[in-house]
């Protein structure tokens, strides 16, 4: 019995080591915002925490199949352990505390960062420096820079341009069915609902554009019918000065309309 326990634990340790090494791989799309950094960090933490649990099951399964398994009919019954003693209670305590740990960190702590106030939705402070009103409709988007009075939509050089190192707040609405506003490079998404406004805040941290990297795109992530899969909108993150220039260049076009 002791021999088997030691051997199985050895298998577990080896598998865990392999698993944790693989978990360090860069699985993630481009990082474009501080929210994305947080997501990648929490995702890694969860892999690191979950891996030993996963490999424990795998180790016991493989060890038992290889050491105790046979294709022929066993000639005797196994030992009649019923598992009524200490074992299950220890198991319950361990799994319980693991679940509690994950709930608190990174669960609730991450949630507290994500929702600093009741109406905000997004990591970091919600004192946004730029507000973009987003309207989803079948099957595209309209981006409205409310303060500057600029509107970008399909007709006018379809592109969502954002300044780098800026807290951007999106106010999202829908005119017909439910859509979902998602930018993979920012790792944030929130549904666009008819009849109410939802909010989402991001802090951009890196330059990037759709032509080079398709993680810089707005993607509708809630099934909305026929052209759901092509309901995308390119995103470009530019230096602040360039953003101001771009905004100015858009203005006459907007007023001319």
């Amino acid at each position: 019995m002791r021999r088997h326990v030691i051997a199985a634990v050895a298998v577990w340790v080896v598998l865990t080591a392999i698993g944790e090494t693989l978990a360090l791989a860069d699985l993630y799309p481009t990082v474009g915002s501080s929210e994305a950094e947080d997501f990648d960090r929490i995702f890694r933490i969860l892999i690191v925490m979950g891996m030993p649990v996963f490999t424990f099951v795998i180790a016991v399964l493989f060890y038992c199949v290889i050491r105790f398994g046979s294709f022929g009919k066993p000639s005797e019954d196994g030992p009649a352990y019923r598992g009524a003693g200490l074992g299950p209670r220890v198991w319950l305590a361990v799994t319980g505390s693991l679940a509690l740990t994950v709930m608190i960190f990174p669960g609730l702590t991450g949630l507290a960062e994500l929702q600093p106030d009741k109406s905000g939705y997004g990591w970091g402070e919600s004192n946004a420096e730029l507000v973009v009103r987003v309207v989803g409709f079948r099957w595209s988007w309209t981006m409205e820079y409310a303060d500057a009075g600029v509107t970008v939509s399909t007709a006018q050089g379809k592109e969502l341009v954002l300044p780098v190192d800026t807290h951007v707040k999106f106010e999202i609405e829908s005119t017909d069915v439910i859509h979902s506003f998602w930018i993979p490079a920012f790792r944030m998404k929130i549904d666009a609902l008819p009849g109410r406004t939802t909010h989402m805040t991001v802090k951009t941290t890196a330059l990037g554009r759709f032509e080079d990297d398709d993680a810089y795109r707005v993607q509708c992530a809630e099934l909305c019918g026929l052209d759901h899969s092509t309901m995308t909108f390119p995103v470009r993150v530019v230096p602040r000065a360039e953003f101001e220039q771009w905004l100015q260049s858009q203005k006459p076009a907007a007023t001319a309309q």
């Binding site: 019995m1 088997h4 099951v57 016991v60 399964l61 038992c64 199949v65 105790f68 398994g69 046979s70 294709f71 022929g72 009919k73 066993p74 005797e76 019954d77 196994g78 030992p79 352990y81 598992g83 074992g87 299950p88 198991w91 319950l92 799994t95 319980g96 693991l98 679940a99 994950v102 709930m103 669960g107």
Partner: peptide
């Protein structure tokens, strides 16, 4: 997250049963 605790008991039963068993 809490629902992983009762689910874990199912795993306990499965793994405890095959441990030292005569697996056919």
């Amino acid at each position: 997250e809490a629902i992983s605790i009762p689910t874990g008991l199912v795993f306990l039963a499965a793994l405890g049963t095959i441990w030292m068993g005569r697996l056919w």
